[in-house]
């Protein structure tokens, strides 16, 4: 039995060591509205006070390009301030729908960051804006 136990322990140590270096991936849940996009009616009674439009755009070119954010047409260059504003908004009225209008060239890292900020701030309804699709 002794050599077998040796081998089993060696294998156990191998798998433990192999799994240490791996960072487990998590999932950021992004529930979407079902059905036809054009038919989706996101606003139901009682009607919320308004909407929060967050527009993300990419300005500049090459290495110097930065992602800018606007909340209801007000430009936020400091993302720390943007996060603070979103948290304050969510603490006052989490039922307000947040609509993310993301520019085509915005990197995934930036819009996932903003989406996560909205989610962790406590907004109930976060939507992605899209251009109207031509009928099929």
């Amino acid at each position: 039995m002794t050599p077998m136990i040796d081998v089993v322990f060696l294998l156990l140590i191998f798998f433990v060591c192999a799994s240490i270096g791996q960072i487990p991936e998590s999932t950021l849940p992004t529930p979407l509205a079902a059905g036809s996009i054009e038919a989706a009616d996101p606003i139901e009674a009682p009607k919320p006070l308004g909407e929060v439009w967050i527009r993300l755009a990419r300005r500049g070119a090459g290495e110097g390009a930065v992602t800018t954010a606007e909340i209801n047409n007000q430009l936020y260059e400091d993302w720390g301030r943007l996060r603070g504003t979103l948290r304050e908004l969510a603490s006052v009225a989490p039922e307000i729908p947040v609509i993310l209008d993301i520019g085509k060239s915005v990197p995934v890292g930036d819009f996932v960051d903003i989406f996560d900020t909205c989610r962790s701030a406590g907004f109930d309804d976060i939507q992605f804006a899209t251009d109207s699709q031509p009928p099929a």
Binding site: E25, L28, T30, I37, K104, F115
Partner: peptide, 29 residues
């Protein structure tokens, strides 16, 4: 993280159009 929304938007659109609501982004802590 360096991919752009240009590639992601059609996937989200396809999910919404075909009625798939369970969508998630893989992220790291």
């Amino acid at each position: 993280h360096a991919a752009t929304y240009l590639e992601i938007e059609p996937i989200l659109l396809a999910c919404a159009q075909f009625g798939v609501t369970r969508v998630g982004f893989a992220v790291l802590p």
